[in-house]
């Protein structure tokens, strides 16, 4: 039996997928920075973590 979705449900699913895609797109790098800041031992300086410049 084929699963049939109503037009509203399809629209909601499509919107949910779009929002998740945007969230991952803009949240991926902050997530990596969060891991780098919280999981590293010793915990690095936040400016040093963000910037590759040697003076920072």
């Amino acid at each position: 039996m084929a699963l049939s979705l109503s037009e509203d449900t399809r629209e909601r699913v499509s919107k949910l997928l779009d929002v998740s895609r945007v969230a991952v797109h803009y949240g991926w790098i902050p997530f990596i920075l969060y891991l780098g800041w919280t999981q590293s031992l010793p915990r690095p300086n936040l400016i040093k973590l963000l910037s590759p410049f040697p003076t920072a």
Partner: peptide
């Protein structure tokens, strides 16, 4: 320009 800010993380 790149650096390794900690043994676990790096940036470019």
């Amino acid at each position: 320009l790149s650096s390794q800010s900690s043994p676990n993380s790096a940036s470019t």
